[in-house]
Design a protein around this nucleic acid. Structure first.
Length: 828
RNA sequence: AGGCCCGUAGCUCAGUUGGUCAGAGCACCGCCCUUACAAGGCGGGUGUCGCCGGUUCGAGCCCGGCCGGGCCUACCA
């Protein structure tokens, strides 16, 4: 019996996990008492090779709140999903199995993806359990599973029924290397060096019209020239036409307020399509379509002699031809911002494709109102969403030309081209592998072509609340939580995507917010303050410790220690990872453990029914209880505002400085020198030690779920009726606080001064003093200290206390001390 | 170029509404194997609070302008 001198963290963690599993305390029961507290967790991509400690950080931060709310009596719904939708998975599987997509059906391919990602997800789940996430694993979902495909397709049907979905052939952002369309949110802007060429067109009167462009290969695709209407140099050209060099066709000359007079020559060309501005002018002014680049990034027939070349080759050729024709008037290097595909970093082109869109541009005001409704933590993150909403320029293009993904539940009638939608009870459906159950409602035809495209992955990710709520009524799902959910947890860089799209979906489907609160975590960064890179993890060799691998870190220092590190940055702020900080976490775990050993030693087999009332306790005991009571609202406020770091800081300070360093040191003497104290004083100490440790375990439980569980089970569970500390009541301060005991503060100052003097005079802390001289100017202070001579002498390790004249100042004005070491006293 | 966040000790970070606000932990140095803990205890801050102005009796905090970093936005051809 008795706690081991050194805890076996691995065994403790395993025991706790087993207990949680056996008792099912994290399983959601819709009928359980308490207000429902539901969490919309980010489904991590499972195609990535490794998790890093940054993942541990952000998921831990959310989990602190979850555990706190559970102890607050909320009925917690805490699911976890995995994102195995999308391109990384597709590429991974394609490569691994050497798939020829022409000979594989979507469903066969999907099965392989599910198999692969399922295996990776098992490893992920194992890790999340190891980290101590209190997830109800029955709620696990996969974004490509039947339930999620059904939910996504139902979302499409519902939005279609509501008139929110439309199909249109328009210029779409296009990634030529992936050969798929992209949405506005899939783009990034990079800065690169480019060459701006001055090229002469020809006016009808034969004069040169020089424009500047970085993309001369699009000259055959030129459909107009533009100038600013206030630019006197070109006003006479309005309504006229210009001859395009080399290509030889004519284009209209138009004006536009947005043309910068001082850029280049003030005259510009518009092509179909060089950039988004071209698209806008093309649409607005009804320009001709001369698509110059095809889906694979090669020049089209429009490019004449350059057809079939890729854009770079065409650019070189046409520059040479322009030069030969005397149309190239100059070239210079410039810094240029260019839109690239976020995933491939390739500059985007435009393609004309029939695509499905969700109309969102008219929702700006409504979405901004939703943003106001939402409780943002931290609140300044709100402006990021608002800025995105206000900057929207395009409806949401939900079509992607990928093989793998959620198909559209759509067929096109072979006879009349009518769109035929699947019915709800057919979902999930793959239109390439099945047909409508009824003939075409328009022409009665029975031949159909399934829509070959798949949905943008955000079509699914934006539905995580609906997936969790089983909005689609999929069979065999565990009990769902109602919508809206309580909390969304995510990092700030995907506000414009995940948060925005989720908001759109809930607004359109349910006319509500998806959740009431949102909590933004920052990023875990490596020691250099950079994002974790593949290299940070790839250096890992089998069986070798990698400081960024969270499983390795847990094996070495314990899960509680890693979680402790995660609590080190304020909400929404990035946190650099240092192994040293995890060691501090382990130190805390060991300290708690040793305090428990001390309590066990001084208060063995404590019977809570014999607890001494606060009023009956000694000043030291009333002091620490009063301090603890004053700590409670600080910790609670931290958790209530999602600022777990405030909670941790306050808790750590109380535990280390007040409880361990001072209170325990003060109280020890009662058990060491029996004769100097009464049994009542010892009983008071036992009650206090027992009680304060119990409260501390509760307060630390959200951060350190393992060690607190172990100690709770060992010392307290038998006296309470809870299965686990994690379902015990959160400690609240009593209505009437225990009065503060200021004399103990004076005592602490005095002890600090004694310790400091010992250091200064190189006197070991443990060596007894013959005498401690205390000099207090204030009679009240002196009287207070005189009443506590016993404790003071014991804690200062002084054989006697004398009140007289002393010279060493303490931190308290008017209070001085002197110490008389043994040898010196004997000599005098 | 614009928006938001950040810049405090060697490192990671606290510093509510301007008035013991120059702080914590780590690291480092010194002493101590004192009966919970040497994977420990005790003591020690080592600083131009990014820079320059302004408001104020008083600025790490408020205002303006710079510099540096991050995230996001942007059609400059």
């Amino acid at each position: 019996m008795g706690l081991d001198k050194t805890p076996d963290l691995g065994a403790i963690e395993e025991r706790a996990r087993q207990l949680w599993e056996d008792t099912g305390i994290y399983r959601f029961d819709p009928d359980a008492p308490g207000e429902i507290y539901s969490i919309d967790t980010p489904p991590p991509y499972v195609s990535a090779a490794h998790l890093h400690v940054g993942h541990a950080m952000s998921y831990s931060q959310a989990e602190f709140i979850v555990r706190y709310q559970r102890m607050r009596g909320r009925n917690v719904f805490y699911p976890m999903g995995f994102d195995d939708n999308g391109l990384p998975t597709e590429r991974f599987v394609e490569k691994k199995y050497g798939i020829n997509k022409a000979r594989t059906t979507r469903s066969e391919f999907r099965e392989l993806c599910l198999k692969e990602t399922g295996e990776i997800a098992i490893g992920y789940e194992r890790f999340w359990r190891k980290l101590g996430l209190s997830v109800d694993w029955r709620l696990r979902y996969s974004t490509i599973d039947d339930h999620c495909r059904r939910t996504s397709q139902l979302s499409f049907l519902d939005l279609h029924a509501k008139g929110r979905v439309y199909r249109s052939e328009e210029p779409v952002f296009w990634d030529p290397s992936m050969q798929t369309a992209l949405a506005q949110a899939d783009l990034e802007t990079i800065t690169r060096t480019s060459t701006l060429h001055d090229i002469a067109f020809r006016a009808p009167d034969g004069r040169d019209l020089v424009i500047s462009t970085t993309r001369p290969e699009l000259i055959p695709s030129c459909v107009a020239l533009y100038f600013n209407p206030t630019d006197e140099r070109y006003q006479s050209l309005a309504g006229g036409r210009a001859l395009v060099p080399v290509a030889g066709h004519e284009v209209p000359i138009l004006s536009d307020d947005d043309v910068k007079i001082d850029y280049g020559t003030g005259l510009m060309m518009v092509c179909t399509f060089g950039d988004g501005a071209d698209v806008q002018r093309w649409k607005r002014d009804g320009l001709e379509l001369r698509l110059g680049v095809d889906a694979a990034g090669k020049m089209t027939d429009v490019a004449g002699a350059y057809a079939g070349l890729d854009t770079d080759a065409a650019r070189k050729r046409i520059l040479a031809d322009l030069e030969a024709a005397g149309a190239l008037r100059g070239s210079k290097k410039i810094e240029q911002q260019v839109a690239v595909s976020e995933r491939t970093q390739r500059p985007t082109e435009f393609q004309m494709k029939p695509h499905w869109y969700i109309r969102v541009l008219d929702l700006t005001d409504e979405l901004l109102a939703r943003s106001v409704e939402l409780n943002w933590h931290p609140d300044y993150m709100k402006v990021r969403l608002d800025a995105w909403i206000e900057g929207l320029k395009y409806d949401w293009n939900i079509t992607r030309q990928r093989f793998y993904g959620v198909p559209f539940p759509v067929w096109y009638c072979d006879g009349c081209g009518a769109v035929v939608l699947a019915t709800e009870d057919e979902l999930p459906v793959d239109p390439l592998e099945s047909s409508p159950v009824t003939p075409c409602p328009k022409c009665g035809g029975t031949a159909f072509v399934g829509d070959p495209d798949v949905m943008d992955t955000w079509m699914t990710s934006s539905l995580t609340p609906h997936i969790n709520a089983n909005w689609a009524h999929s069979p065999d799902r565990p009990p769902p939580a109602p919508l809206p959910m309580t909390l969304r947890v995510q990092a700030y860089e995907i506000i414009r995507t995940w948060l925005f799209y989720t908001l759109v979906k809930s607004h359109l489907h349910d006319n509500t917010l998806p959740w009431t609160d949102v909590m933004m975590s920052g990023w875990g960064l490596n020691e250099q303050g950079k994002k974790f890179s593949k290299r940070d993890l790839e250096s890992k060799k089998e069986g070798q410790f990698n400081k960024y691998d969270p499983e390795d870190v847990i094996d070495k220092y314990g899960a509680d220690a890693l979680r402790f590190w995660a609590a080190g940055s304020h909400l929404g702020h990035d946190l650099r990872y240092h192994e040293e900080d995890v060691k501090v976490g382990r130190k805390l775990v060991l300290k708690l453990w040793n305090v428990a050993r001390l309590v066990e030693q001084y208060a063995p087999d404590f019977d809570p029914s014999t607890i001494v009332s606060i009023a009956q306790r000694t000043p030291e005991d009333r002091w620490i209880v009063g301090q603890l009571e004053r700590l409670l609202p600080v910790v609670a406020r931290g958790f209530d505002t999602y600022d777990y770091a405030i909670a941790r800081d306050a808790l750590d300070h109380f535990f280390w400085a007040e409880f361990c360093d001072d209170y325990i040191e003060l109280v020890k003497d009662r058990f060491w020198t029996e004769d100097s104290y009464t049994d009542a004083e010892r009983a008071s100490a036992r009650s206090t030690l027992w009680e304060v440790l119990r409260t501390l375990l509760g307060l630390y439980a959200p951060f350190l779920p393992f060690v607190t569980e172990e100690l709770y089970q060992y010392m307290y569970a038998a006296h309470e009726d809870a299965l686990s500390i994690h379902v015990t009541r959160w400690p609240d301060a009593p209505a009437a606080l225990t009065p503060e005991v200021p004399e103990i503060e004076t005592l602490r100052v005095l002890l600090q001064a004694v310790r400091s003097e010992r250091t200064r005079t190189r006197l070991p802390q443990g060596r007894p003093l013959t005498e401690l001289v205390v000099d207090a100017d204030e009679p009240a202070t002196r009287a207070t200290l005189e009443a506590m001579t016993q404790s003071l002498a014991a804690a200062a390790r002084a054989r006697s206390i004398r009140f007289g004249s002393a010279a060493t100042e303490t931190q308290l004005p008017g209070l001085r001390i002197d110490i008389v070491p043994e040898e010196k006293a004997e000599a005098s």
